[in-house]
Design a protein around this nucleic acid. Structure first.
Lengths: 215, 215
DNA sequence: TCATTTACATGCAATATGTACGTAACATAG
DNA sequence: CTATGTTACGTACATATTGCATGTAAATGA
């Protein structure tokens, strides 16, 4: 039998490891049970640490949730960026970004965390700030180009409303709604606002069961 | 000094009274502090009853929230119905219903309760079921007429996405967003989907500070 | 007026949260 | 290599909260 060797790790490594263990465990439980009905003893048990570690790394339970939500939001933003960063044509970039958004939203639990729990746990303002970046820049740009006479407030409002529609589409897809119907409807909405002629019969090629673990 | 006379009330009256006191107190606190951070002792203290009464009338804290949320949703539906029930022209009915929805959403705390707390407390499915009725029937009808070739799934999707946009508009208005900008943007969205020629410069007559206490 | 049901009050057991304090692991100066 | 400081984590505790179990008062109705 080999002797236990704690294998001297750096502080940064220790820190990153237990932080990750805590966030991973919290993610599983928050997704499964929701934030309010998940107890910190359960989180630390699953993470294999103690509550002391949790309260050392995070101010409180809400702070742990915030860290998790920020990771999720960043993963979405990165996924969209990687998909669109080298596309020149704005119209194609918008369509590609839209697809990338829906792809990113397929990872299990993400919708639950960001769209159901986050608004109540962090408040609406913080919650939308998390996903503010997600393609809304491209959206706003497209709107500004398409509606040159519209006021800034009008552009902001349209951007916000379309973002809400995007979110709802992802939510419904996650709850078993027809993905192609929602994506097509979303495409129609954006297209009409941007003044692009509608291509109504966009029957999608039925991309099979949702692929998960995107990043 | 007059003697205390308990004034023999009927069971139905007693029941209705304390139920109302509990729901009113809960409303204030849930709006102010949120569901999770509101303790039942505080609720019953403000209501002037004991926790025993609470747990006699409601299964648990969540059940109390559900009752409150259902009242709010019903108030919205009633307000819209009263405003639209005798309007024949579908297009005008839609516009009127839209305005009535935004009016109904002006009562303080309503947005917080139904759009921020409810999804996390009751779950997304129950939460949308609460407001499912709100004008979505008229919306669906209008869409069916305007897009006769569209599939049912497409109609459902568009209805849902526009509902989400309505909700977001109300949310942003409640958080200080420009009401006329959001209403106009919403009107544009619905108009374009329904194939009504846009009347872009709908600068509203600035109806002054939001009037509250609608019902 | 008596029996039964309904409405509420009180007390208790279990569990959760955040913090204070103690200990172990790492970093760094000499 | 050791001393000393700092960071990471463990343990114990005080407090608060929830839901239930059990007791009492008020209303119904026979």
């Amino acid at each position: 039998m080999t002797q236990e060797k704690p294998a001297r790790r750096s502080q940064a490594d220790r820190r990153a490891e237990t932080r990750a263990k805590l966030i991973d465990a919290a993610r599983e439980l928050f997704v499964e049970t929701g934030f309010a009905d998940t107890a910190t003893p359960d989180i630390v048990h699953k993470a294999g640490v103690t509550r002391g570690a949790l309260y050392h790394h995070f101010k409180d339970k809400t702070d742990l949730f915030r860290a998790l939500a920020e990771e999720e939001a960043k993963a979405i933003a990165d996924h969209i960026d990687r998909a669109t960063h080298d596309i020149a044509d704005p119209e194609l970039a918008m369509q590609t970004g839209s697809d990338a958004f829906f792809e990113a939203m397929l990872v299990p639990g993400r919708v639950r965390l960001l769209m159901e729990e986050a608004p109540a746990v962090l408040g609406h303002t913080s919650a939308v700030a998390l996903t503010r970046a997600n393609g809304s820049a491209e959206l706003r740009e497209g709107l500004t180009r398409a509606l040159p006479d519209a006021s800034q407030a009008r552009i902001d409002a349209l951007t916000n409303l379309l973002s809400a529609a995007f979110d709802r589409a992802a939510l419904e897809i996650a709850y078993g709604g027809d993905p192609s119907a929602y994506k097509a409807a979303m495409h129609q909405l954006v297209g009409q606002v941007l003044g692009i002629e509608a291509d109504l019969p966009v029957a999608e090629p039925a991309l099979g069961p949702a692929q998960h673990r995107l990043d």
